[in-house]
Computed example of a mutant assay.
Amino acid sequence: MASPLKQKRKQWSEKDMENAIGSVRNQNMGYLAAARAYKVPRSTLFCLCNTEGPPATVSKTKLGKRPILSAELEEELIRYLLIMDQKFFGLTRRDVRSLAFQLAKRNNIPHPFSLLRESAGKDWFPSFMHRHKNTLSLRKPTGTSLARAVGFNKENVTEFFDLLEKTMAERNYGPHQIYNVDESGLSIVQSRCPEVVSLRGKRQVGAITSAERGSLITIVMCMSAAGDFVPPMIIFPRKKASDQLKKGAPPGSMFAFHPSGWIQTDLFTKWFDHFL
């Protein structure tokens, strides 16, 4: 439900304010009479009437506390934030507040920022994000390795598709001859437990799992464009093989064992023989 203050603001439009300002300036009405006639706030009408400019322009003026940084400086800050985000070095709240302080100091702008911390206040950041809510938002990033960030660029992707197009034109492979292989990590411990009924006020509620910290199992999967599956390769995080771990696996599956549970070069070579 909207607050009473927001409901009052929605009851009048810029056109109502424009007409009220014109009536006051033409001395047809006083502030109080114009505010009642056009249903606009009297204090806002008083401030806008004393602002220079035609009523049509003045009625669109936003009152209140002005931003410390100018619109040009904030646009410069936004461009820098987006560039850093594209480079996988997105900035945190604290980084943005520190940059705001540096911009104000470099441009000799009077500011109430903390000189000791050399940072804008905590209240400045929500206001900054609200002013640019159509462009910026707070997001939780996904961990990306440096090798993937460097390797996935326009030049490499273009080279890959050029090579793919050339190969497809020469060989004319069918859907049953095109396979995609990928590996995925699977935790043997559930990450989220469902809610259970417990005693109100109890400090800690537990639920039995196979372990408190999960072990990662790697599964190598392969499928053709026609929908044909290759039996998977399952890599367990242990040194010695165990037939107990092979129970219930898909027919034809391949099993491997390594202390890390990750796929290694020699293991992928064995999988490729399995694929052929």
Rank of each mutant, 00 (worst) to 15 (best):
K202S: 15
G185F: 13
V40D: 03
V189I: 04
L163D: 06
S119D: 05
M29G: 05
L63N: 01
A20C: 06
L146H: 11
S242C: 08
F257V: 05
G185W: 10
E195F: 13
M17W: 02
S3F: 12
G90Q: 14
P141I: 08
A34N: 04
N19W: 00
F229Y: 09
A211C: 04
F272P: 01
N19P: 00
Q264V: 11
P54A: 14
P55A: 10
V24I: 11
G214V: 01
I188H: 10
S23W: 04
N156A: 11
Y31A: 00
N156M: 11
T61I: 04
W271F: 15
S191Q: 14
A241F: 08
A207E: 08
Q86R: 15
D228G: 01
L276A: 02
I68T: 11
D123V: 00
I208Y: 06
I21W: 04
T44K: 14
E159C: 13
M221Q: 07
R79E: 12
R9H: 11
P112N: 01
I235Q: 04
R213F: 08
S127P: 06
F229H: 05
T218C: 14
P4K: 12
K87S: 08
I21E: 06
S224F: 08
Q7V: 13
R9D: 03
L115T: 02
N156S: 10
L267Q: 15
L91D: 00
P237Y: 12
T57L: 09
G64F: 07
I208K: 07
V150E: 03
F128Y: 13
G214F: 12
T51M: 14
R9P: 03
M29H: 07
A207K: 14
M84Q: 11
S187L: 15
D228F: 13
T167P: 06
L136Q: 07
G185M: 07
Q204F: 15
I78F: 12
L216M: 14
Q102V: 01
S260I: 04
H176M: 00
Q244F: 06
K202N: 10
Q264W: 07
C47Q: 09
S210K: 02
D273N: 13
L82W: 07
N156G: 13
L77W: 13
P41N: 05
C49G: 13
S70D: 06
E195H: 14
Q190N: 12
F128H: 00
V96W: 13
S127R: 14
T142R: 13
G252N: 09
A33W: 09
T142F: 12
M221R: 00
C193T: 15
L199D: 06
T265D: 11
G206Y: 14
I235N: 02
S119Y: 01
I178A: 07
A71Y: 11
